[in-house]
Structures are given as structure tokens and as C-alpha cells.
Design a protein around this nucleic acid. Structure first.
Length: 634
RNA sequence: GCCGGCGUAGCUCAGGGGUAGAGCAACUGAUUCGUAAUCAGUAGGUCGGGGGUUCGAUUCCCCCCGCCGGCUCCA
């Protein structure tokens, strides 16, 4: 007999009884929302049986992260079963649960079409309805190898060959057997809600060198309601898509005639960008940065010296010939800033030197990776390079980190995911410098009191870095800020300063971008605010609307005054009904609509209406201007 | 770059071997109107580009460009 505890309850059962039976006996209600159990810290199937060491059983709730993962994983198996039953000569590869869903990779005779997706989903529904038991067992490695070999499952063979230990576990449902660690649902009927979401090509083991397999994506949830909520969230994200809003609000476009990944900023988008840039410049001047400008092209030798020519050649635009010299469009700003630094002999007393630039760079991104404003070929970095003595490193990083957070918060981002990336396998620079820099970054992070995680080996070849991802209102993360320590470039460009004893010494550099690229950051802002920018960023802040043409003259004077006060105003005196004009202003997401009718004109007032639909009491123009000015800042 | 899908009026989309259609937007006229769409009329397209098949291609085939979903990549 085994003494079993589940939550508060305790009872003895004979060995060999399944966890399912134990729960059924002890707490039927609990069983209903349980998909697996954790026993002594290990996840097990409900079908698994008690053995002598099992004492405490923790049920895994279907709504829990692990519970949903188990559902998704089982759904992936159901999909594999469906695909194998529908198509000949299919080999299955891997099929894990992922964030928001699951996928399974198949090696097929031909790629899947959208029609295939429907067929597969329909077959999956049949399999769920048939409620096949999902049974796991442990088998010898040799036996498993033989089994999958006989079935022609070469990918499974490869996986098994790479596994440690003598035993592997396999799961079977109906006539489909898969290599799998588990756990799984007790039977296919336990899958409550799923949907296939797409197909894609995906390389075996993620390497371009390997064969491209067919991946089918899907998702599964604990209930139909949860699935519907998820689909509604996707729909919400779709509504916020910066590419859609960019067109609707006339913010930006790209043009086939110009080229992929090159952005045209329309007047509305340009206004937002200008406000961002003005704010950025002002804050940098306050923060003791020097703002600089540098050319868009330069001799390729600069990039050979920097090392980018060797490391990133496939992402540089081809050189152009200028009187026998090779020039390229710049992929980075750093060498220019270094050249400026080097025009003078620097003393330790001059450091740190901070150069900031809204520098437009061009990188040849492979066509398949381009995406709206988020991944483009020409973009403007809010770049800066700081030259300092090694002693100044920690203090400087703290300063940069706090500055970054301040700027991001000014744009309405208050939640961050912060990562410290440490030395990668391929690196340059002395180990002791790496250690020093990593500990300086760490100390700076700790001084903020914010949580962060370490990405081991994810640093750049020339130094460790801090990356900050901002979270938008619907919880998505966007990589924007990066703070990178660099030992490489000062060396390569022979950057120096005179230390306290008058000797030549090597400064350390920091590269940092707060918004990353203006394009990406702008795209992120659009989605964060769903196009309804805060007042200080809105392309048009106020629109003056007349009720009838009798009010045109007064409306003009209101409009003129608003412009004189530096507010971005528009005047709509078209011969249309008020409702029509309001609707249009609303769709343009203009923060304030000033309604001007006979009564406002008679009283010398304006009647503000807010973007949200709320009408404010008529007030004097001065009063409104005061309100607007109060809101016209971060 | 790779896999799949898509490209028709400014936008959203329908159509389909015999040279195209709707709604909204635009323009013109009437209406002078109070917080999300007044009515009527007009105009608008080398059907992404190039080549091929065909008596005839926007439709079928090939190549290219661009966009979308992924993979890979992202200093």
C-alpha cells in the first residue's frame, strides 16, 4: 500500500492504481479540472500508476501554464496523427507546445495549402471526438530505434540517437505512436478547444543548411471561451497594426517604386517624428551630450577597420565607386563619432565625451525579414557613443540606464523586460575587461532595483550589453533600447586619452540607442496607443469645427489664435453637417474637437469635445489654450 | 535568402479566356444643418511589371518586383 496525499486529503492505495483513479476516489471535483499530476516534483500522466515512492500528488490544473501546455502538446500529437492518416509518405519531425499554441513539423511530398489546413483540422476534430486513449510507455532505446526505423521516421531516429540514457518514452493513440517525453492528456477527447492557425516552411533543427520541412501552427485552450478570448486578442492586435493605422492615419507608406524597406514619412508621421526628435535633442543637451551630424556614405576602409566589413558583410549594401575609391552607405554611426573624438588630443579630464546623433543608417536586410516599420533597410538610430576611462564605466552605465528609463517613460511605457547579455563564444577583447564590464552592467542594473534576466552568451562580439524591451498596453514586448560596452573599436581605431600620469591610455566606449530606431519606435508607439497619440505627440491636436457657415469668420479667428499659440490645429469649415465633421475628426483620432456654433460665437467661447466622445462645457478660448498647453508635454 | 499565400479604382473587396464592378473616399450641385455618416449627379483602372501560349490574356504558363504569415538572420 502507498500512503497518498492530495492537498488536505490522505489515503492509502495499493500499488499500481493510476493517479486518475486516486483523484477520482479522493476528489472528483478536482479531477474535473486536472490534466496531469506532479509527483515528487515530476510531471506524470493521469494514466500513470502509483509506485512505492509516490506520496504527495499535486494536480496540474487545466488552466495553469503547465496544464495548457499539456493540452497543446497533446493537440500537436493529434495533428500529427491526422496528417499521417491523410497523406502518404509523411515523416514527422518535432511538435512542441509554444507560447500561444503549438506546431508540428512534417517532411511531406508537397507543401501544405490552406485547403490542407482545413482538411487536417476536420480530421483532428474526428480524432478528438473518437476519444482515443493516449498511452505512454517506456521502451528500450534500441527497440525504439528499430520501431521508428521500420516506419521510415528518420527524424525520430536522429532524435533518439542524440538522447542520453537507455530508455525513451513513447506515446500511442490509435495507430499513431510518437517519441515523446510527455506528459499527455489521458485521451484525445480531453482536448476542449483548438484551432489551426497557419502553415510555414521551417528548417529541420532550425538550420538553413538542413531540409525545409512543413510546419503547421495551431493553438489549443482549456475551454472554447479561452480560445475565443485568444482569437479576440489577435483581432485586437490586428486593429492596432501600425501598417494598417499608418495608412488610415496617413502617417507613412512604403513604395514599390522606391524599394522594399524604405519608408516615406508623410506629414502626419513626420510631425510625430519631429516632436519626438525635438524632445530627444532637448533631453540630450540637458544630459550633457553633444549633438553631432555625420555623412551617409564613407569609404569602405572605415568598416574594414571597425570589423563590420568582416562580420556583417552580407548585411551591407554593395560599395559604389567614387573616383576609384570604394564607398558604402553607412550601416552604423560609430566610426564617424570616433573620428570626431580623434580630432583632438583628449585628457582624462575631458572624459566622458558623449556624442549623440539621430543617424540614418542603411543595412541590407534579406527580403524575407522586412516587416512594416519594425524591420526596414533604412532607419534612423537615436545613437550615441560615450568615451570614458575604465573607472568611469559603472557610473556612466548607471546614468545611461536611468536616462533610458526616463525617456521611455516619457512616451508612456512603464513596463520593461530587461536583459543582460554576457560574453558570446566568438569575442574580442581581454577576459578581464569582459568581467569588469559585465559586473559594471550588473551593478548598474541592480542600482535601479528593477528585475532583469541574464542571457548568457548573447552579448555582441565586442562587449556585453543591456537590452530593454518595452511592454505595450496589450502586453507585447518590443526590443528597443540597447546599451553596449565596446572594447573593440577603441583598439581598432587606436582611440586614446592621456591619463593622470600623462601616459597614453585606452578609453572604453559605450554604444547606446534608447528608442533603437525611430521607425521601429514609432511603429511601436502607433500600436501602443492604437493610433490615438497622447496630446503632445498628436499630428493634429485640435480641429475647429463649425456648425454653419455663419460661424466661419469666428472659427477662423479661433484657428489663427491656436496656431499662434503653437498648437497643431486644423480648421474644418466645409459645408457639411456637424455630425459628419465630428465623425471624421474622431476617425482621425484628433484629441480635441472645438465646436463653434452661434452660441459659442455669441459668448466668445469654444465647445471642446474629446476624442473619447466626451463633450466638455463651453469655455473661453484662453481657458482652452491653457488646458491644451498643460497637456502639451510628455 | 527559403516555404506558402496574395497583388483588380485612393481604401475595403467582388469578378473572371471575348479589353471590368460595388461600397466608402474624391469632384460638382442642392441643402445652412448642434456632437460618429444630408441628398443627387460626375469622374476615376495599361487588373503590380515583363515575357510566353492564344484569333484574343486582367483571367492560363514562366520570370521579376512588392506585400502578408512563418523559417533563418538582426552589429
Amino acid at each position: 500500500m502507498v500512503q497518498v496525499r492530495v492537498a488536505e486529503k490522505e489515503k492509502a492505495y495499493p500499488e499500481g492504481v493510476s493517479f486518475f483513479e486516486v483523484l477520482k476516489d479522493l476528489d472528483k471535483g478536482l479531477l474535473k479540472k486536472t490534466v496531469a499530476v506532479r509527483v515528487n516534483g515530476v510531471l506524470r500522466d493521469l494514466r500513470a500508476r502509483l509506485d512505492s515512492t509516490d506520496t504527495t500528488i499535486e494536480p496540474v490544473d487545466i488552466e495553469s501554464k503547465e496544464g495548457i501546455e499539456i493540452c497543446r502538446h497533446s493537440a500537436a500529437h493529434v495533428m500529427a496523427e491526422a496528417v499521417r492518416s491523410l497523406y502518404d509518405n509523411v515523416k514527422v519531425a518535432i511538435g512542441p507546445a509554444i507560447e500561444d499554441g503549438f506546431y508540428y513539423d512534417f517532411d511531406t511530398e508537397r507543401p501544405f495549402t490552406p485547403e490542407d489546413l482545413e482538411k487536417i483540422e476536420a480530421r483532428m476534430k474526428e480524432i478528438v471526438k473518437a476519444d482515443h486513449p493516449i498511452i505512454g510507455k517506456s521502451v528500450g532505446k534500441a527497440e525504439a530505434l528499430e520501431f521508428f526505423k521500420a516506419k521510415g521516421e528518420i527524424y525520430k531516429e536522429e532524435i533518439i540517437a542524440g538522447l542520453e540514457g537507455d530508455e525513451v518514452s513513447v506515446y500511442s493513440q490509435a495507430d499513431f505512436t510518437d517519441l515523446c517525453r510527455g506528459p499527455h492528456l489521458p485521451s484525445t477527447g480531453w482536448i476542449k478547444a483548438f484551432k489551426l492557425t497557419g502553415t510555414a516552411g521551417a528548417y529541420w533543427r532550425g538550420s538553413e543548411k538542413n531540409k525545409m520541412l512543413q510546419r503547421v501552427y495551431g493553438t489549443a485552450f482549456a475551454s472554447r471561451k479561452a480560445l475565443e478570448d485568444y482569437l479576440a486578442r489577435i483581432e485586437e492586435a490586428r486593429k492596432r497594426d501600425h501598417r494598417k493605422l499608418g495608412r488610415e492615419l496617413d502617417l507613412f507608406t512604403t513604395s514599390e517604386d522606391i524599394g522594399a524597406g524604405l519608408v516615406l514619412w508623410h506629414p502626419n508621421g513626420s510631425t510625430v517624428r519631429r516632436v519626438i526628435e525635438d524632445f530627444w535633442k532637448g533631453e540630450h543637451v540637458k544630459g550633457d551630450y553633444s549633438i553631432v551630424y555625420t555623412p551617409h556614405i564613407a569609404q569602405v576602409g572605415l568598416w574594414k577597420t571597425s570589423g563590420h566589413w568582416d562580420f556583417y558583410r552580407e548585411n551591407l549594401f554593395s560599395p559604389m565607386d567614387v573616383e576609384g575609391q570604394e564607398y558604402i552607405v553607412k550601416p552604423m554611426n560609430c566610426p564617424f563619432h570616433i573620428q570626431i573624438y580623434k580630432t583632438h588630443l583628449r585628457s582624462y579630464r575631458d572624459l566622458p565625451v558623449r556624442y549623440a546623433e539621430l543617424g540614418t543608417v542603411y543595412r541590407y536586410e534579406r527580403s524575407g525579414v522586412l516587416h512594416g516599420l519594425l524591420r526596414v533597410r533604412g532607419f534612423t538610430q537615436d545613437d550615441a557613443h560615450i568615451f570614458m576611462t575604465p573607472d568611469q564605466l559603472e557610473e556612466e552605465i548607471k546614468g545611461v540606464l536611468n536616462f533610458t528609463l526616463y525617456i521611455l517613460k516619457s512616451f508612456g511605457f512603464n513596463e520593461f523586460d530587461i536583459y543582460l547579455s554576457t560574453r558570446p563564444e566568438k569575442y574580442v577583447g581581454a577576459l578581464e575587461n569582459w568581467a569588469k564590464a559585465e559586473s559594471a552592467l550588473k551593478a548598474a542594473l541592480e542600482s535601479t532595483g528593477l528585475e532583469y534576466s541574464v542571457d548568457p552568451g548573447e552579448g555582441v562580439f565586442y562587449g556585453p550589453k543591456i537590452d530593454i524591451k518595452i511592454k505595450d498596453v496589450i502586453g507585447r514586448s518590443w526590443q528597443c533600447s540597447t546599451i553596449q560596452v565596446d572594447f573593440n573599436l577603441p583598439e581598432r581605431f587606436d582611440v586614446t586619452y592621456r591619463d593622470e600620469s600623462g601616459h597614453e591610455a585606452r578609453p572604453i566606449m559605450i554604444h547606446r540607442a534608447l528608442m533603437g530606431s525611430l521607425e521601429r519606435f514609432f511603429g511601436c508607439l502607433v500600436e501602443h496607443y492604437a493610433g490615438a497619440f497622447p496630446f503632445w505627440l498628436s499630428p493634429v491636436q485640435v480641429t475647429v469645427l463649425t456648425v454653419t457657415q455663419r460661424n466661419d469668420e469666428y472659427a477662423r479667428s479661433v484657428y489663427k489664435r491656436l496656431r499662434e499659440e503653437g498648437l497643431r490645429a486644423e480648421l474644418d469649415i466645409r459645408n457639411e453637417k456637424l455630425g459628419y465633421k465630428i465623425r471624421e475628426a474622431q476617425l482621425k483620432k484628433i484629441p480635441y474637437q472645438l465646436v463653434i456654433g452661434d452660441s459659442e460665437e455669441a459668448d466668445g467661447k469654444v465647445a471642446p469635445r474629446q476624442r473619447g466622445g466626451e463633450s466638455l462645457a463651453p469655455e473661453s478660448l484662453d481657458g482652452f489654450i491653457e488646458r491644451a498647453k498643460r497637456e502639451n508635454r510628455p
